[in-house]
Design a protein around this nucleic acid. Structure first.
Lengths: 218, 218
DNA sequence: CATATTAATGAATACATATTCATTTGATTC
DNA sequence: GAATCAAATGAATATGTATTCATTAATATG
């Protein structure tokens, strides 16, 4: 459907550029394959997912996958990078639409939960990915992951500057803890299969509440 | 060194039972192999770790591993189960030595961080494992994982009963969030390679502080 | 519509590694 | 110290799957 390059969706500036027929065709194939791979990776995990599974899911032959992606790894990374870029784009966009640090932070939490809930295949992939990274001590991570973290930290600093957060705490440490809370919340969100339409806003309220005020009895 | 069965270390009751020579020999081999496997799995991850790697690390031949473990999976699970049992044992022991729900909870957090920091090979394995579980929706998990969770939840309920935690929050939800915080803290603890002897007590203080009182400016 | 160009196919190949098992080595008993 | 039993070895086997590439199909071009 979408005939623009992915980058145009995730870069803040610049007008999306229309691509020529050939590029458009290529992009469509890549998208097909990425969608299929997302699903299969999430279902089976990186190692148990075979290229044949992915090709079958995308309704292409095995070899076709290799016309569009270098190898299995690079297909995997394409998914991760594309999605994180999109999330970062959404975060910047939505937090830009509200004023005040507290509101921005709240928006970021809401949009993160919303994103991962919708893209839960990807969330499962990401959890795997994070652990791969940890295990290999591949500290470089991808620049884009670093970007997202930096962005959240900057929001925390703003909130601190506004006087809503104690100044004796390290923004970096606060961020780690906040990410821990968000991840835990998504897990519990995804586990509750019954109540699908779970009240996200309510949940964000609870998180902000816990985060800002703790669990102490009032 | 240790000539007792593992169970004796992780079961609360019963006097450790001395084993006969043959059993003892067998247990020593298993221990050797588990130690080696722990290391290799943590370094390379489950899939890239080969049985040959593990055998080499343990200074045995490839086939020897199969005399003591059914297959690669069962070796892997042995590690996870053994360690979680030990952690649960420690948690029960140490929290039993203090009084008051708040103090118990604080002790549990401290001991968890301490355990994972010391056993960081295992922490890395566990993170992988958790994600495997999540992805496969293998909800059964192992009984022992469930036990640990139940134990933490019981501490939270006690703290709630003592009036230190708001009663409108679900213990289960609080636990998820607390586990998220702990996990995030360990990550950040392990990343800071420089300051090894990081002040654990200080960190637990911060966590309890954030958890009970939030990050709000006083 | 003949030719050239590009895309797609999937069977064949290459490779990695879990697992087996015939053989060797070491320990125990009488 | 010969005979028996147990433990350890590691080369050989089995399996699974990533990747290639000769072939076929589809599309564009003059």
């Amino acid at each position: 459907m979408n005939t623009y390059s992915f980058d145009s969706l995730s870069e803040e500036a610049s007008v999306p550029v229309l691509l020529d027929r050939k590029q458009r065709h290529r992009l469509l194939r890549k998208t097909d394959i990425i969608r299929a791979a997302e699903h299969v990776f999430a279902l089976k995990g990186f190692h148990k997912a075979t290229i044949q599974d992915i090709a079958r899911q995308a309704q292409y032959a095995t070899g076709t996958v290799y016309l569009y992606f270098e190898d299995k790894n690079s297909l995997y990374f394409s998914i991760v990078v594309e999605k994180i870029k999109r999330l970062l784009y959404i975060l910047k966009l939505k937090t830009g639409q509200v004023t005040g640090a507290r509101k921005k932070l709240e928006t970021a939490i809401y949009e993160s939960l919303n994103f991962f809930q919708k893209e839960n295949d990807f969330f499962r992939i990401l959890i795997q990915e994070e652990s791969h990274w940890t295990i290999r001590r591949r500290m470089a991570k991808s620049a884009v992951t670093q970007d997202r973290r930096d962005f959240l930290i900057s929001l925390i600093k703003e909130t601190q500057a506004e006087g809503l957060i104690r100044k004796d705490l390290q923004p970096r440490q606060i961020n780690d803890i906040l990410e821990g809370i968000i991840t835990a919340s998504i897990f519990s969100l995804l586990e509750e299969e019954a109540s699908q339409a779970k009240d996200l806003k309510g949940m964000v309220g609870t998180i902000m509440d816990l985060f800002l005020n703790g669990v102490k009895k009032k």
